[in-house]
């Protein structure tokens, strides 16, 4: 048997071993993206799904025009960016704090590590309903407890009020309350992801670095800022990129918490609202294409920059 025919046999076997995976990915990931492009260029309503109208060749950019000329488009985009950046940063900050707390050995550390991952493991429906219940103005434990103990003068509708006026030392300002609450939830639910990566990186920093710095007279805070933080720079920026990509396209959390009400409408919710609120599948697909475009830019950044650092 020649080497060449052995190679041919191997590659044919490899092809068949990978064929099912390729078939599934082609059918349920690659095809939908192309099909989405096709729909986004056609006038398709929810009522057209059964007929042959889906395959007619009547392409135009009308759907994109509708999406971009929507008077709320800029607000939605801004909300999406605030939600994405706020949620990503908060989850990474909490993850960093948790990782630093659990970096040294102590009794019960493994238990705490397990506990800290729970928000990320539990199903999103259960967590959003529980938080909605805790924050409910009438029946929620948070508001009732705070009002009973004189911490709050009146209950705060965290998830259903757009603005909250605050006054600190005579200076009045207002915060987008519901958006703020949704960002807090995002930070709470996804900090375990950052926590695990940062903890793994922390434990890979050689002890000699710290010993050497101690010998040179560096105090704990100095050691943190001059050794730990620079060592974490790569993992923190990679985490931000990943969290940004996933939060930008996240639908479940905001949909289940607020349905996009009270100033929390983000772009992925527009995909749903166009399709099932206005029965306009074409505009829905066009919105998904916009999301896909932004995502493609970030995936490109990841491959140009992130991969190099990871290797």
């Amino acid at each position: 048997m020649t080497i060449n025919s052995k190679y041919h046999r191997e590659s044919r076997l490899a092809f068949w071993m990978l064929a099912p995976t390729f078939a599934v990915v082609l059918a349920f990931v690659v095809f939908p993206v192309l099909w989405n492009l096709w729909i986004s260029l056609k006038p398709v309503s929810l009522a057209d799904l059964r007929g042959d109208a889906l395959f007619q060749f009547n392409l135009s950019l009308d759907n994109f025009q509708k999406v971009f000329s929507d008077p709320d488009f800029e607000t939605v985009l801004l909300t999406t960016l605030v939600y994405t950046i706020g949620g990503s940063l908060l989850s990474i900050l909490l993850g960093l704090m948790a990782a630093l707390l659990l970096n040294s050995r102590f009794l019960g550390r493994a238990l705490l590590r397990g506990l800290f991952i729970a928000p990320y493991i539990a199903p999103v429906v259960a967590l959003t309903f529980t938080w909605s219940f805790i924050l409910d103005p009438q029946l929620g434990v948070f508001n009732q407890f705070a009002v009973n103990h004189g911490i709050l003068a009146q209950p705060i509708p965290f998830l259903s009020q757009r603005w909250l006026d605050l006054g600190i030392i005579g200076v009045g300002f207002r915060i987008p309350l519901a958006l703020f609450s949704v960002i807090l939830f995002e930070g709470w639910r996804y900090f375990p992801f950052a926590f695990l990566f940062i903890l793994a990186r922390l434990q890979a920093i050689p002890d000699e670095f710290f010993h050497a710095a101690s010998v040179d007279g560096a105090t704990p805070f100095q050691r943190f800022f001059h050794i730990t933080l620079p060592q974490l720079a790569t993992v923190l920026s990679t985490l931000f990129l990943f969290r940004f990509i996933w939060t930008f396209t996240k639908f479940d959390d905001v949909f289940l918490l607020t349905r996009g009400q009270a100033g929390t409408k983000v772009l992925p919710l527009n995909v749903y609202d166009y399709a099932f609120g206005e029965f306009n599948i074409g505009a829905s697909s066009a919105t998904a294409m916009v999301l896909f475009g932004v995502l493609a830019i970030f995936i490109f950044i990841y491959f140009r920059w992130g991969m190099r650092i990871e290797n």
Binding site: P32, V44, F242, T249, K250, V271, A288, F292, L295
Partner: peptide, 15 residues
């Protein structure tokens, strides 16, 4: 594919 979000796939698959 790992970075691909469900929201981009759900409408075309629904259709």
């Amino acid at each position: 594919i790992y970075m691909f979000p469900a929201i981009v796939l759900v409408i075309p698959l629904y259709v």
